[in-house]
Write a protein that binds this DNA or RNA. Structure first.
Lengths: 325, 325
DNA sequence: CTGAAAGCGCTAACAC
DNA sequence: GTGTTAGCGCTTTCAG
């Protein structure tokens, strides 16, 4: 910038004005500066700018795994909102590891992102308190924050699972399995609660052998599913706790001769062709809503922490309407 | 940091030493500084650090759409490599718009990312020359750079498409359609070339009505597919140019009574269950390889631009082995 | 309308 | 082992 000023024969501040298209520069001077910029290939150093202004025009998003289509879509929605606000997005995948979540979130804070959107992996977010106090707006999505009070945008996991299981019951099932994510994960617990409530609503007892929580690794899910299909009280239907689980369950069921009903949480690409009945949640809406709330905070809106729950939708496609065998 | 120094009763530089775990501090002093840091909730301002050091420990990735599972997986692979190098990743989606690609890439450069990985939307990247000259290492992935010479990591689109179409021919097809992405996109053109070559290899003529390039919007692909199924020379097989196209083609074919063979470029989740034969490319390997090359550059390796072509793999699953009707 | 000086928070280089 | 000084590239303030 100094060089540009020298070359254009003007002061430093004048270059700054031109670069930021601030008013108060003669068209003629502006042209000279522009030429100098061009010929020197000058590009403003945003780091220095940030240091001065305090705002980085960037936000951070900590999610579980960008390779999961659910989070990919969510991230993209956040990016669109950020873009509309002239803001860049930094992504980080926690791989469902609380330490890594914290490491990422704090790294983002050290870069002085203006705001943070977090899909929690851990259940204690007190480590963010000083950052939030220091002015980094924070919104939690998909799962609630642990041990701090903050803006949160969720899907209605409980209601969705309950509706899905009720759907299976309505189609005549009595022995229904539930395969979900690890019990540390809030959505897994909520969906299990939805399952139990739906069963209780109809006065159905739940056998321990019908419920399995754990990682979404294919081997684990496969074993759980096979376990429920054998034994003294084999299930005639399953509720899959999320898209990763559904994918594996569909594969296992495809190998069976007996027809087993299935409803899965989360929609999946091509699920329509495979006839998979799902409880769809709108991952893009989740991201969009969270981002909008974040920018509302960045615009200075002061209100007590907001909690939004987005509705889910039951999409019947066949697998959930198979009668008990 | 000044405050920490004051509180701990030490000099500024000593705090800096502690924060960066540099040697030359008494354990006792270090403890005092640590305490001050804790109680003040101090966190180093990386912007200032960047300004001083020149390196931001961040890289930028410009891709088409993070919500596309192909790019999601690629991005995640890049992130893993970056993480191993203590580097953060900034993502941006170009939405296949060259202007937006440029806007993003330059925005990343203004933030002084150490390196840039670009999945080109446009075909002229001379705008990056000053940046590259200024020291921002740049690697292109999935598609080659336009009008500049730079490190590039691609899949073998030509070879993959050729093998896929040859596979269809081997199963008896003579009238084979090709539906691909817009002709501005390098991979689309390469895959079309693979198609034409495979046809020519067997002495088969290609009717204009069998080839359709354009956006991957479902309506466009649907119309193209339906067009090829009707008319005087209906196709008995199709080659789909990428995962977006395949998804729509599968839907259209599912509605037909006649059985039409299909091979698609890119693997898709659940394609195994739907029996879709594909030419798989390893998006994670693409990302990993590109990122590794980038860090090789950042480590100071000077060599003339590298070009890597990753092999593709034909996975027969049924749809590509349907005989002509 | 324009420019000179101060300083954002940190680190490199050199004292002590 | 520790502190001091200068300055990274920009914007803010205020004087011309």
């Amino acid at each position: 910038m100094k060089d540009v000023a020298a070359r254009a024969g003007v002061g430093l501040k004048t270059v700054s004005r031109v670069v930021n298209s601030e008013p108060g520069v003669t068209p003629d001077t502006e042209r000279r500066v522009q030429e100098a910029i061009e010929s020197l290939g000058f590009r403003r150093n945003d780091s220095a700018r940030v240091l001065r202004k305090g705002r980085t025009a960037s936000i951070g998003l900590v999610l579980e795994d960008l390779a999961d289509p659910f989070y990919g879509a969510l991230s993209r929605a956040v990016e669109e909102v950020a873009r509309a606000h002239g803001t860049l997005l930094i992504n980080g995948s926690s791989a469902e590891d609380p330490d890594r979540e914290q490491e990422l979130a704090l790294a983002f804070c050290a870069r002085r992102v203006d705001g943070l959107i977090v899909i929690p992996a851990g259940d204690d977010h007190r480590y963010l308190e000083p950052e939030i106090k220091a002015g980094i707006a924070t919104v939690f999505v998909d799962r609630p924050a642990g041990r701090i009070d903050a803006d949160t945008v969720l899907s209605d996991s409980f209601g969705g699972a309950r509706a899905g299981v009720a759907h299976l019951i309505a189609h005549g099932h009595r022995r229904i399995g539930f395969i979900g994510d690890r019990p540390r994960i809030h959505t897994a617990v909520e969906r299990l609660r939805g399952y139990r409530t739906a069963m209780a609503d109809e006065g159905l007892a739940v056998s321990d052998s019908w419920v399995s929580l754990g990682t979404t690794a294919p081997e684990r899910v496969r074993a759980a599913m096979l376990g429920m299909l054998t034994g003294p009280e084999p299930v005639t239907a399953v509720f899959a706790g999320n898209n990763r689980v559904t994918v594996t369950v569909v594969r296992v069921l495809a190998e069976q001769t007996r027809r087993v009903a299935l409803v899965g949480f989360d929609d999946i690409e091509l699920a329509d062709l495979l006839g998979i009945t799902v409880i769809a949640q709108d991952s893009a809406a989740l991201g969009r809503t969270a981002a909008e709330q974040l920018f509302r905070r960045l615009d200075g809106v002061e209100e007590k922490p907001v909690r939004v729950a987005l509705r889910t939708m039951l999409i019947p496609r066949g697998s959930g309407e198979i009668p008990p065998s």
